[in-house]
């Protein structure tokens, strides 16, 4: 089963994503894509770590190239989140890349290794503000990646102030 969890900032996406694994018996991995590049990122990582503690996830920190992660068959995978992964892949060595295909292939690889896959992403395109070209490109590519990911996901769930709303498939 594959589930894409989307929504805005601090609206309960992780909470829902982790709940999916409550009854998962096999080995489960948490793929963390956020690079601890500043104090705020460190705080966010620490907060998520605390929430996850005791839930049996093995954490893999991988900021780019998720297709390189070696994983056992039929495992559980929670990846958090597409927005960081996309930014890390896009903005490298002072250049701007289009990582759509690479990331989608990475997600397909994770799907092929797992029994339960949950991808947490962000809606970054709904505030109506115009940005400089690099950020505009990022919003466009995030939109594309989310659309393509939704296509091969069984469930797509949007979290609205903590309430999971099914956009495709079913709630757990």
């Amino acid at each position: 089963m594959m589930t894409l969890v989307t929504g805005g900032s601090k609206c309960g996406k992780s909470h829902y994503a982790e709940k999916i694994f409550d009854n998962f018996a096999g080995k489960k991995f948490y793929i963390a894509t956020m690079e601890p590049y500043c104090e705020e990122a460190l705080q966010a990582i620490e907060r998520h770590r605390k929430i996850r503690a005791g839930k049996g996830f093995e954490t893999i920190e991988k900021y780019t190239d998720i297709e390189e992660i070696s994983l056992p068959e039929n495992c559980g995978i929670l990846l958090e989140c597409t927005a960081n992964l996309c930014a890390n892949e896009m903005f490298r060595d002072d250049k701007i890349y289009d990582p759509t295909e690479k990331i989608i292939n990475g997600f397909r690889y994770l799907k092929s290794r797992s029994k339960e896959l949950v991808i947490v992403t962000n809606d970054v395109g709904s505030n109506g503000i115009s940005y400089e070209s690099g950020t505009e490109k990022y919003i466009e590519i995030m939109g594309k990646i989310n659309r393509f990911t939704a296509e091969f996901s069984d469930n797509v769930i949007e979290s609205v102030y903590g309430i999971p709303v099914p956009l495709k498939g079913h709630l757990i």
């Binding site: 929504g7 805005g8 900032s9 601090k10 609206c11 705020e40 962000n122 809606d123 970054v124 395109g125 709904s126 505030n127 109506g128 503000i129 940005y131 950020t135 990022y138 919003i139 609205v160 102030y161």
Partner: peptide
């Protein structure tokens, strides 16, 4: 209450 979280992370720390 408006939904305000669906966008790019703001540059200003107080906004974030």
């Amino acid at each position: 209450i408006n939904e305000i979280g669906c966008g790019i992370i703001p540059i200003e720390k107080s906004d974030r």
